[in-house]
Simulated assay, not measured.
Amino acid sequence: MSVELNHTIVHARDKRESAAFLARILGLEAGAEWGPFVPVSTSNGVTLDFATVPAESIVMQHYAFLLSDEEFDAAFARIRQAGITYYADPHGKQPGEINHHHGGRGLYFHDPAGHGMEIITRPYGSDEPSAES
């Protein structure tokens, strides 16, 4: 059996709010509450289990999601429609812009708990060959 990431726990101030937020942006569904978690599953089988914890114990994490061009367009439209601030860079120095790294498109935004979320259309290191190649 090959090694695969199966799930991770995402700390939130409100697990339902954070799970619903991410699911809405990505065009996914938040699952039914399961024990202390509200799951959001991705198409490659990884589940993000949102858990409510005290706000002072939340440490900002980064989560990056690889989307098709069509999924990116839809997610980007939902981000803009919701008035969510987004950035071309992870440090928030380029608000209202997207990037074109690795031959694709990407952007960063924050979830309700302050986690850094990223959506990209090309994995890191997958630059398309230039016309000179």
Results as ranks from 00 to 15, higher is better:
residue 4 E to Y: 13
residue 7 H to E: 14
residue 10 V to S: 08
residue 10 V to A: 10
residue 12 A to S: 15
residue 12 A to T: 05
residue 13 R to Y: 02
residue 14 D to M: 09
residue 14 D to C: 10
residue 15 K to W: 05
residue 16 R to C: 01
residue 18 S to N: 15
residue 20 A to C: 05
residue 21 F to E: 02
residue 21 F to T: 01
residue 22 L to E: 03
residue 24 R to N: 12
residue 25 I to Y: 06
residue 27 G to N: 14
residue 28 L to I: 03
residue 29 E to I: 03
residue 31 G to L: 11
residue 34 W to D: 05
residue 34 W to P: 00
residue 34 W to M: 07
residue 36 P to W: 06
residue 38 V to R: 10
residue 41 S to D: 12
residue 41 S to V: 15
residue 42 T to C: 15
residue 43 S to Y: 09
residue 43 S to C: 04
residue 43 S to A: 14
residue 44 N to Q: 05
residue 45 G to D: 12
residue 45 G to F: 01
residue 46 V to N: 08
residue 46 V to A: 10
residue 46 V to T: 14
residue 47 T to R: 15
residue 50 F to R: 06
residue 50 F to C: 03
residue 52 T to D: 14
residue 56 E to W: 11
residue 59 V to W: 14
residue 59 V to G: 11
residue 62 H to W: 10
residue 63 Y to G: 01
residue 64 A to L: 10
residue 64 A to V: 06
residue 65 F to L: 01
residue 65 F to S: 05
residue 66 L to I: 02
residue 66 L to D: 02
residue 67 L to I: 02
residue 70 E to H: 07
residue 71 E to V: 01
residue 73 D to E: 15
residue 74 A to N: 13
residue 75 A to M: 10
residue 75 A to E: 07
residue 79 I to H: 09
residue 79 I to G: 04
residue 82 A to Q: 13
residue 83 G to D: 05
residue 85 T to M: 13
residue 87 Y to G: 00
residue 88 A to D: 07
residue 88 A to L: 12
residue 90 P to R: 08
residue 90 P to C: 09
residue 91 H to N: 13
residue 92 G to W: 11
residue 92 G to C: 06
residue 93 K to I: 04
residue 94 Q to P: 00
residue 96 G to F: 08
residue 96 G to W: 12
residue 97 E to V: 01
residue 98 I to T: 14
residue 99 N to H: 08
residue 99 N to M: 06
residue 102 H to Q: 04
residue 103 G to D: 04
residue 103 G to P: 05
residue 103 G to I: 00
residue 103 G to Q: 01
residue 103 G to W: 00
residue 104 G to C: 09
residue 104 G to S: 06
residue 107 L to F: 00
residue 108 Y to S: 01
residue 109 F to R: 05
residue 109 F to G: 03
residue 111 D to K: 02
residue 111 D to L: 01
residue 112 P to A: 05
residue 113 A to K: 02
residue 113 A to M: 08
residue 115 H to P: 03
residue 115 H to R: 06
residue 116 G to H: 11
residue 117 M to I: 15
residue 117 M to S: 01
residue 117 M to R: 10
residue 118 E to T: 05
residue 121 T to V: 05
residue 122 R to L: 02
residue 122 R to Y: 02
residue 123 P to N: 06
residue 124 Y to D: 02
residue 125 G to R: 12
residue 125 G to E: 09
residue 126 S to H: 14
residue 126 S to N: 11
residue 126 S to C: 12
residue 126 S to Y: 08
residue 128 E to C: 04
residue 129 P to F: 11
residue 130 S to M: 12
residue 132 E to N: 07
residue 133 S to G: 14
